[in-house]
């Protein structure tokens, strides 16, 4: 087991309305020099959270409400750019368990699913509502694949493939699954699958 299982999350939302938030913004390159994963939450969105002298800005990420939130709602195309897994490591260390946007970049999405962070792509109407109503309490149910918005916001379905859903709900990663395929792998290599001619 590599992370806490995720079935249902109820939390007030933390909203970042900017579009195309890239992984350089989520975790600036100067924090990629570490050889462990620990403590990256302190550096997540560092350029928004800290002044040049290291003091904290008044950004929502530095407020108790921000720090208590487990659901991040972000503008369109969240997580684009660099493949750095330090981005989801930082977000989960900060306390985020779910990211909701109208689009999530491919590599960030893949990396998130491997770290107990659920990326949800939700339809525009719900996304707009969430952006317009920051800080509301939202429930994400991975069992039913639904996002429940409060007040008259409604309930929305989201899509996730069964395999990823299973891994998140059980808190298991894929290493064990791949290790279980060594017979198929041996066979593939024996049959000269793949290319490397040297």
């Amino acid at each position: 087991m590599s992370f806490q299982p995720l079935t249902k999350v109820t939390s007030k939302t933390l909203v970042l309305t900017a579009t195309n938030i890239d992984t350089d913004q989520i975790m600036p390159a100067k924090f990629l020099s570490m050889t462990t994963k620990a403590g990256l939450g302190e550096h997540v969105f560092a350029n928004l959270r800290y002044n040049a002298d290291g003091s904290e800005t008044d950004h929502i990420l530095n407020t108790p409400a921000g720090k208590a939130s487990e659901i991040l709602v972000a503008g369109h195309n969240f997580g684009c750019g660099s493949s750095r897994e330090h981005a989801p490591w930082g977000l989960t260390d900060y306390g985020i368990r779910v990211v909701i946007s109208s689009e999530v970049a491919d590599i960030f999405r893949t990396n998130s699913l491997k770290n107990g962070l659920l990326p949800i792509i939700i339809e525009k109407r719900a996304h707009d509502w969430l952006l317009d109503n920051p800080g509301v309490e939202v429930t994400v149910d991975l069992d039913s694949c639904e996002v429940h918005l409060p007040r008259n916001g409604g309930t929305y379905k989201f899509e996730i493939d069964d395999f990823s859903r299973h891994c998140l709900m059980e808190g298991v990663d894929e290493m064990g699954y791949l290790q279980g395929q060594h017979i198929e792998l041996d066979k593939f290599e024996k049959n000269q699958g793949g290319n490397r001619n040297s």
């Binding site: 897994e85 990396n111 491997k114 770290n115 990663d173 791949l178």
Partner: peptide, 12 residues
Amino acid sequence: IGTTQVGHVLAN
């Protein structure tokens, strides 16, 4: 790929 998958490829 991310670092988790770097691990997958190293091992598998």
